[in-house]
Design a protein around this nucleic acid. Structure first.
Lengths: 337, 337
DNA sequence: ATAAAAAGTAGAAACGTTTCGTTTTCATTT
DNA sequence: AAATGAAAACGAAACGTTTCTACTTTTTAT
């Protein structure tokens, strides 16, 4: 049915080993090169990955484990990563951890059993115990978007603290003093909170506990609930600006202010993370810290690929990227009025 | 390094074939059963999928091709499908078609080369030419969410026409006559438009062309643009209710009405498709037609699995599911006031 | 022109399973 | 106790590659 390398042998009269060598980039005599090329085309030959894998112990498949694929960030990241891997001839097996550490651990096990060549992971867990199975099987792992502190792991992250700090500084520069924050207790959420706090401290502004709202996980309702909480404060104490640590959170905040008829930026200023569909289409256009998603994906893939080659030098590779501010109209300049 | 079936042979003294037979569910003497079980546990043996696949010609991997994974619907569907497949021990290679027919065709080719056992596809294309490669390779294909008319293909869809028809009838029953619709030119968009039109026709209501707004693809801006278009109509002609064919579209519409300070449901009634995060959290709660996403996923996987077994009976399997109305507070009853 | 070196080719073994045809085992019947 | 038949075990071949070693041909240097 399917043509094999033996058919090429029959067609060309060459030895299996010669053909195999050429097909894997080796040198053969020009005449034989031509013969093989012709036979391959004629027979529409494609190497059988299973047979190849049986010997080389490579599956040409990468596992991608991420905390949640149904969110916007996860979906987009998957999109980029999948594209890049396919371009390199790699398949991607994707496993959604559903924000659950034990599911995450199972995912790794599954991928190890599937004998993937490498694993990309946006982790839920904060320590690297769940990766032991992969480590034992000698499968390279690269972490992206989130790193695991203390672990000897290649990773690609953005400087969340610096990014959120400069986002909040942007607010402060425009005269805001009562700035509240909504964030999650996840990796990115906490780091972005730290940046918020640092900016406030360095500006000599204090952060009353009512100005921080957080829940376990980034979600629309986190933003919605947080904003409503702020609105319950006495008017004189209400924040003039809100820093939100994620796209979904921003959606929730916008829903909440629209509901009570508060205008942005006239009554309240907003600054958020991740410029995705909604932040781009809404009016006023949201001012956001934009993560270089494509670069995050491509760097992670690049590092993983470098680990897949022979000379996988032992040096740890940690890439730190920077977010950039995309200015919209959602922040009011209080110095002017 | 990795233990093989030969190690089990050494450990138990049994023949390879006996061990293999038992491992694949065959019968062996109780004593041997025990011996093998013990050795498997002791050596932490896992069958090598490559070696197995080389003989059985099965990769235990399913390809999932979908029109767009970065959208909410695609993300959630991927989540469900991935889960179900993993539970059956199958890996999933996911390919995003990016709403592009030629990418879609390439995706199928890629998966065929990867020798997946089966393919699930939410197609972009409207004819099945792009599946020829898979057909030739004898790889079963199941379509979900969208079917391809005229094609001999297993599929799982919902009755979009009936669903949108009853959504619009719900509006009509509450006294609405000037009902506008926003939809895309994709499969689901067009079907939902048809249901809208049918409901209107059967109620004797006419649909002026200004009451239909459409763009190529479901998106937030489609909703945003559409709603703004309706708002440009002379007040006396403005619709009292809007039917939106998708979640993202609903988001855009809500942004647009919030911007100009129109209240829902007091000034305008809304009804949409797909109850996802935002529609659940916003106030008023949106009235939506809810698709049984999990069932769509599980039925598709079930059908595919049945095709993977030996006796793949030739009968076509087409499953038609129904959406149900999830009543919120976004529709005003005009008969009351 | 010749020897040495380099480049290319060939054949066979190996990878870890499943499967097939044959032989052995064991319980049942005569 | 021997014959029968079904159930279980066995051994070898096969799956489609790569890789290793040995061999042949070509190129280069003398």
């Amino acid at each position: 049915m399917e043509s094999t390398i033996k058919d090429i042998k029959r067609e060309t009269g060459l030895a299996l080993s010669t053909i195999s060598k050429y097909l894997n980039g080796g040198n053969v005599r020009p005449e034989n090169k031509k013969k093989i090329d012709e036979a391959v085309r004629k027979l529409d030959y494609h190497p059988n990955e299973m047979a190849r894998g049986l010997i080389t112990k490579k599956t040409r498949t990468i596992g991608f484990v991420l905390y949640d694929i149904s969110g916007t960030f996860g979906g987009l990241l998957t999109h980029y990563v999948g594209d890049l891997l396919r371009q390199s001839g790699y398949g991607m097996i994707i496993c959604d951890s559903n924000n659950d550490k034990s599911v995450e651990e199972q995912n790794i096990k599954f991928l190890v059993e599937k004998k993937v060549d490498g694993i990309l992971v946006v982790p839920v867990s904060t320590d690297d115990g769940f990766l032991d199975v992969a480590k034992r099987a000698d499968i390279p792992v690269v972490t992206l978007d989130r790193s695991i502190s203390g672990a000897q792991l290649d990773c690609v992250t953005i400087d969340n603290v610096a990014a959120s700090q400069s986002a909040v500084e942007y607010l402060i520069e425009r005269g805001h003093k009562r700035i509240a924050a909504i964030y999650s207790e996840e990796y990115t959420g906490k780091h972005r909170r730290d940046g918020y706090r640092r900016a406030m401290r360095e500006a000599g502004l204090n952060v009353p506990s009512e100005y921080e709202y957080h829940e376990k996980i980034h979600s629309v309702s986190l933003g919605y609930n947080g904003m409503n909480r702020f609105l319950e404060l006495p008017v004189s104490k209400q924040p003039t600006a809100i820093f939100m640590s994620n796209y979904e959170v921003a959606l929730g905040v916008v829903m909440a202010i629209n509901e009570v008829g508060i205008a942005c930026p006239d009554d309240i200023s907003l600054i958020s993370f991740d410029a995705l569909t909604l932040t781009l289409v809404m009016k006023p256009k949201m001012t956001v810290m934009v993560q270089p998603m494509e670069t995050i994906a491509s760097e992670a893939v690049r590092i993983l690929m470098s680990r897949l080659g022979e000379g996988s030098q032992a040096t740890l590779q940690r890439v730190l990227l920077y977010a950039s501010l995309n200015e919209g109209d959602s922040v009011r300049d209080l110095r002017i009025s």
